[in-house]
Each structure stands twice: as structure tokens, then as C-alpha cells.
Design a protein around this nucleic acid. Structure first.
Lengths: 344, 344
DNA sequence: CTGTTAGCGCCTTCAA
DNA sequence: TTGAAGGCGCTAACAG
């Protein structure tokens, strides 16, 4: 069995309270430096390790932040998670990574399971665009930050990419290359990111005085198979566009898959794609011309910083930082990070 | 603040003990079905949620299994993790996913931090080939299962792919295609998986009566940049092999990257690669001829099952299953899952 | 600076 | 079938 604080107290000939003070508090506690050192030594020697459950029970804080992602097998989510983890770890917090399996139902279950564990805060990459269940948990007092998507029916802080600008710049780059018949492919418009990207695309076209023809905007879905199907429809349609903006990486990949299977003859044109998210495989995608690279780790870092701020604010509600602008608590703060356009 | 068991007890007009019994124990507890139902209703109504920390403190079990992976941004690891998660969830356990950042030092830290949280068990994908620090934790009583790698200096259960067979079959397929000058590229031989794959390669060659020439075996590294460098050396060397077996996906990717940058003229041959791990990008890798696909989710599932078995065995050490073969506790059990050879 | 005391919320013997 | 009581390991008052 593990040693307890009591064992250390006995070995050191002091009370458990003293041991607790010597070991836990950030030096600034009133314990003589001497006893502190002595106790630390004895604890070390005995192999004493504080019991996390007991401490959590007493302090009502687990030093844990839950991160809920739709799936683990997604590089963007995992880069975000790594960014969060690093930030949390730097501050002595542990990340509890959980999966919502791309299902709102599952998301609800996991959220409430996590809330039961009294995590100190939660960072959520929402599975869908409804967020009442998130708001409920936030209202019950769990600090919460959203990532990647902004959600209907919830006033929550969020960290997202500047999607509008990304799509705008991608489209503009294609226009600068001389393309005019440019399609927008994929996208579930219940997702804020998809809406914003479509909007950026439309703005770039408008600024160039190009009016999108019917058929240029091929919405629907956010996953590989959707991209495949959209590309299929495009190739089968009479008028194939010269270039395309893919709403996200999975759609992009599906489109490339379809192109790969299609002999060059029948498709004639439509072999230029601009999309989102870079990876080690980007150079191998034949049609890929431009990529809007999200700062995924940066998003994670900011989300980590924000959730830690919220946790701190909750802990000492009185203290306000002097230097900082005194924003009202009401309303949500949305942090937008820029994307970088690259040509692979 | 959250409701406590006491609130429910008061509302129901019973004692806290009764509430505890009614809600926690698996029905088989001696509580009248009526009170059980009534209490459940009241608890529901009050929004009572058991305090996880308190329960853990009392029961010395957190219903949590830690999964430690070298990095999150790796599809294989994440597929394994999803497999584990599913299995754990099915049994009421929570997965605590942590990252060792590919560093033994960090791995040690995380392991001990996780042990402090008194997780009920740990599944570890080791960062390196030494495992004393793992054995220590296991010996202190934390059930532990290794995944992907077997480690020196530790007698621990492990779930791995049949790497030897995978490399053997890949090499054999290349031989069947008429190639004879076949190289083996990449590999840190401190990793059991790399050793096993090299061994399978060598066996296939031997069975075909082919003696590897010096220069065919280009060991070194397990990451993209290593594959790139190995490929570079191969191209610069006088004798370029006809085909190559890549020790893993990252090496494979690095090799393809180098080939992509090299005009067809100078390299003449050496554009056929057999490697490990399939992904959505596999069809886009120009040189890729065969893939040995690991059953990653299956590995996760088996690892989940095994760790749950070990946890159960630890809880009731007396009970032995009747039907099952009565293996001695000593010694480690290694589960090997077959790989599938595919031609993309 | 240090010790004493009283719980945090829950579970689990022991009695009834 | 239920209740009363003690304690899991730790920390935060309050005394000394």
C-alpha cells in the first residue's frame, strides 16, 4: 500500500498538517525552511506520493482539464490537443482527452461523465452545431472553451481559425492565377467553419467581379466520401469548373481520390484544388495548388491559456488584473487565429 | 454546489447508507426493489451525481485506465487508442490518454504522475526499448499492458502485430513479382518491431536463396527525415536496388518524399516500395506497391480486454475462471495479431 | 512556526 | 431490509 501523509508525519516527528503545508503549498506558506527540507527528504525517502483522490475531495479541484474531441484519428484535432496539453502541463494541469465519436448523443454522455469527475474545466471541439448541452454544463459552473466551431444557442468562449480570411485568400490566389470558373466543394453549413469559408469564397469572387454560376457551389458533407461524391457529380455535370476550393481536408482528399481514379481525358480540366490543412502527405496530392494552413498547435495553446484563465477567474472571483482591459463577464469572447497560405 | 448523497437521503427519508446501496451496487445488493426505484427517481429528480473523488478515495479504484502514447499525431497510435477506449467504455471505464513526447524521461514523469492518480491500470506504447521504469510501476501493483513494442528488462504482457510475418510476406510478394535486389530501409534495432521486421525480410530472402549484398540493409531511424536521408544515400550509392521494404510508415513517407523530388532519370530504378500501415493517403504514394496493414483497432481492443482482465484478477485474486486454461501468473503473455497484405 | 480538530462525500462493516 | 458510525487521505481553519 502507498504511504500516507501520516506515515511521513510520524517518521518526521511532526503533525500531518505540517507535512501537508511543507509539501503542498507554493513555498510561500509559513513553514521553516529547515523543516520543509527535512520533510521533503523523508517523504522522498519513504516514497510518499500524495493521494490525488483525497486531495481532490478536499480541494474540490482535480487539476484536470477535459478535452473532448469528435475523434482521435484526425491530425488537426490531435495537433490542437497537443497544443492544449503542453499549455496545461506547463501549469501543472493534466489533460483528460475524451472522444465524442462525432455524435451529439455521445457528446452529451461524455460531457456529463466528465462533469461528474469534477474536472476543473473543459475544452470542447463540438461534434455538431447545437450547444445547449454545453451551455448547461457551463452554466452549472464548469469553465468551458470551444475550439474550431462556434455553436448555436451557447454563449461560450471559442478559439477558431480565421476561416473567412483563409477561404478568401485561397480563392483570391486562384483568381490571380487566371482561373475564373471556381467551385466551392463540400460543407455542412450547420458548421460555423463551413459557413465562414463559403463566405470568404463568395467575397473573393465578388471582389473580382465574378458571379458564381449555378453548380459552382457543391455543398454537402464534411468527410472523405462526401468529397468523392461531390467530385463525381462535378465530373458528370456538363460544365466542369477550372479550379475548386475544398471546404476541408477530408473533402479535399475525397476529391483527389475521385480524380485519381478518373482518366485525364474525360475530366479535361478541373485538376486544381485549393484546400485547408497541411500534412506530410500534401506534396503527394496531384491536384493540390494552395493550402490554407491552420495554426493548429497555436489554437491549442490559446485554448489552453483561455481555459486556465477562466479556471483562475472562477477560483478567485475578486481579483482583477490591473493592466488588462476590464471586459464585462457577460458575452463570449471569440479568438480568431490567422491561417497561412502556402503553395506546396 | 452539487447535491450529495446526504441530500438524496433526506429527500427520500432514508439513510445515506441505503442511498449508497441503492445507487451503487449492481442490483444484487439487499435493498428492496421498491426503495431502490424510489431513490433512483429522487436522485434523478434532484440531479444527484456521485462525487467521483470521494468514491475513488473510499474504494481505491478510479475506474480509469491510463493510456500512454509517444505522440497524439500518429494515426496508428490513435487507432489503437480508439480501440482501447471502446473496450474500456463498454465496461464502464474511462480512458485517460497521456503523451510521453517520444521521450523516456517524459515517459517516466508521466507514468509516475499517472500512478499518483491511482489509475486502475495502464496501457503503454513505449517510447523506447528500456522498460525498467515500467516494470517498477507494475511491480508496485499497477496492472500494465504494453502495446506495439516489447521492452528490455521487463516482464510485461504485450499486444503487438506479427511484425516478422508482415515483413516476410511483403518481401515475398516483391520476390514473386520478380525483384531480387531488395533493400530494407530504416529501423532502430532497439525497437522490437524493427528487429522483427528485419528478421522477416531476411528470412524471405533466405528462403528464396537470395544473399543480401552489402548496402541492401540501410538501417537507421524511424521517422520521416530518416527515410528521406536513407533514400538519399541509396540514390547516391552506385548500386540502386530494384525494390525496397520500408521499416514503417514514416520511413516510407520520407523515402517517397525523396523520390518525388528526384527526377526519374538519375534514379532509373528503385521506385517500388513495400511498407507498413495503410491510410487514406496510401493510393497517392507513387512508389507504394504493397502494404502490410496492421489491425490497429484490433490491437487496441485486445489491449483493452487484457488490461481489464488484469484489473479484475487483481481485485479478486482468489477467483479463477473454470473454463480457461490455468496459466501461471509468472511470465508475460505476448499476444500477436496478424497483419494483412494489400496492394493499394 | 506548528499542532489540533473537523470535515470533504462516499462506502461498509456491524447492529438492529 | 435498513440505520448508525467510522474512516479513506488530505487540507483549512483555529489555537497555541
Amino acid at each position: 500500500m502507498g504511504k500516507t501523509i501520516h506515515d511521513v508525519a510520524v517518521a518526521a516527528g511532526v503533525s500531518t498538517a505540517t507535512v501537508s503545508r511543507a509539501l503542498s503549498r507554493d513555498s510561500c506558506e509559513r513553514v521553516s525552511a529547515l523543516t520543509r527540507a527535512r520533510i521533503a527528504g523523508i517523504a522522498e525517502e519513504l516514497g510518499y506520493r500524495a493521494n490525488h483522490a483525497a486531495r481532490s475531495l478536499k480541494k474540490r479541484s482535480t487539476m484536470t482539464v477535459a478535452v473532448l474531441v469528435p475523434e482521435l484519428t484526425n491530425d488537426f484535432f490531435m495537433e490542437v490537443a497537443e497544443g492544449i496539453e503542453r499549455e496545461l502541463d506547463r501549469n501543472g494541469y493534466t489533460m483528460l482527452l475524451a472522444v465524442s465519436l462525432n455524435s451529439v448523443e455521445e457528446e452529451k454522455k461524455r460531457i456529463s461523465a466528465l462533469a461528474d469527475r469534477t474536472v476543473d474545466g473543459m475544452v470542447v471541439i463540438p461534434s455538431a452545431s447545437v450547444g445547449d448541452h454545453l451551455q448547461v454544463v457551463a452554466d452549472r459552473g464548469t469553465p468551458m472553451v470551444l475550439v474550431d466551431r462556434i455553436v448555436e444557442g451557447a454563449e461560450l468562449d471559442a478559439v477558431v481559425s480565421d476561416n473567412e480570411d483563409g477561404a478568401f485568400k485561397l480563392t483570391k490566389a486562384l483568381i490571380a492565377d487566371g482561373f475564373r470558373r471556381i467551385a466551392f466543394v463540400g460543407g455542412d453549413l450547420t458548421a460555423s467553419s463551413a459557413r465562414e469559408r463559403l463566405s470568404g469564397y463568395a467575397r473573393a469572387l465578388a471582389e473580382a467581379g465574378i458571379t458564381p454560376e449555378p453548380g459552382w457551389i457543391c455543398l454537402g458533407g464534411m468527410r472523405v466520401e462526401d468529397g468523392y461524391k461531390r467530385m463525381e457529380s462535378i465530373l458528370e455535370s456538363g460544365s466542369v469548373p477550372e479550379a475548386m476550393v475544398a471546404v476541408n481536408l477530408l473533402i479535399h482528399l475525397g476529391m483527389e481520390r475521385k480524380l485519381l481514379e478518373t482518366p485525364a481525358g474525360p475530366r479535361s480540366t478541373a485538376a486544381v484544388i485549393a484546400g485547408f490543412d497541411e500534412s506530410g502527405y500534401t506534396p503527394f496530392l496531384p491536384a493540390c495548388r494552395y493550402i490554407a494552413a491552420q495554426n493548429s498547435t497555436g489554437i491549442g495553446k490559446r485554448a489552453g491559456e483561455r481555459i486556465l484563465e477562466l479556471i483562475k477567474e472562477k477560483k478567485d472571483p475578486g481579483k482583477k488584473k490591473d493592466g488588462e482591459f476590464q471586459r464585462e463577464n457577460a458575452g463570449n469572447r471569440i479568438i480568431r487565429l490567422p491561417v497561412t497560405i502556402i503553395r506546396p
